[in-house]
């Protein structure tokens, strides 16, 4: 049994705009999600103006461009973008590839060899002067910097968070 104030794992609920409109305990708000991407990665808030955010599964946030009523019981909408309900929020590889081109902070640029190691799922020792925690890994492709995914930087080590199914052995 779940009460009105609980997250229901099998369905999509649209995130409340702000904390004042929150009815489900622990649920992130739209304002917090947009603020997270802006504060951590300097992705401008207006990047998400045309999108809605939803929670399905505990703490799993989805970003969606289409129309839908809330709550919604279907298989998926848009893409998973963020894991909340934990101390350090963690963006997904695919959301970082989709929206990370707008990022200007906590982006670690890798050379081709380092990028290939990252994509293969390997951890590596790297120099980094910025914040610790989840960073966007990026590299230069055909003349422009392109995001690869998310890594965790701690104690001089950069750990690839690319999910197993997305890892590839690519030309180094």
């Amino acid at each position: 049994m779940s009460g009105d104030n609980d997250n229901v794992g099998r369905r999509f609920d649209r995130l409340p705009a702000t904390a004042a409109e929150r009815t489900v305990d622990g649920r992130a708000t739209r304002e917090e999600v947009v603020d997270y991407f802006e504060t951590r990665f300097a992705i401008p808030a207006e990047t998400f103006d045309e999108y809605t955010f939803w929670e399905k599964g505990s703490g799993k946030i989805w970003v969606y461009a289409g129309e839908a009523p809330s709550p919604l019981e279907i298989e998926a909408i848009g893409m998973t973008c963020l894991r909340t309900r934990q101390e350090h929020w963690k963006p997904t590889t695919d959301a970082v590839q989709r929206f990370g081109t707008h990022a200007d902070r906590c982006v670690i640029e890798l050379d081709r060899e380092e990028a290939a190691r990252f994509v293969a799922g390997e951890d590596q020792e790297l120099e980094w002067d910025g914040d610790w925690g989840y960073l966007i890994a990026a590299h230069e492709v055909a003349g422009a910097v392109e995001p690869l995914g998310v890594g965790l930087y701690v104690h001089g080590e950069f750990r690839s968070m690319v999910p197993k199914g997305r890892q590839r052995d690519l030309e180094r």
Binding site: A65, G66, P69, L72, I74, G78
Partner: peptide
Amino acid sequence: ERLGATALAVTNQDARNYSLKPFD
């Protein structure tokens, strides 16, 4: 997700008697 398609809503129904009930 790999292709970054955010306009997709995914449903699991028999298309022959598809219901639009989930939508507005």
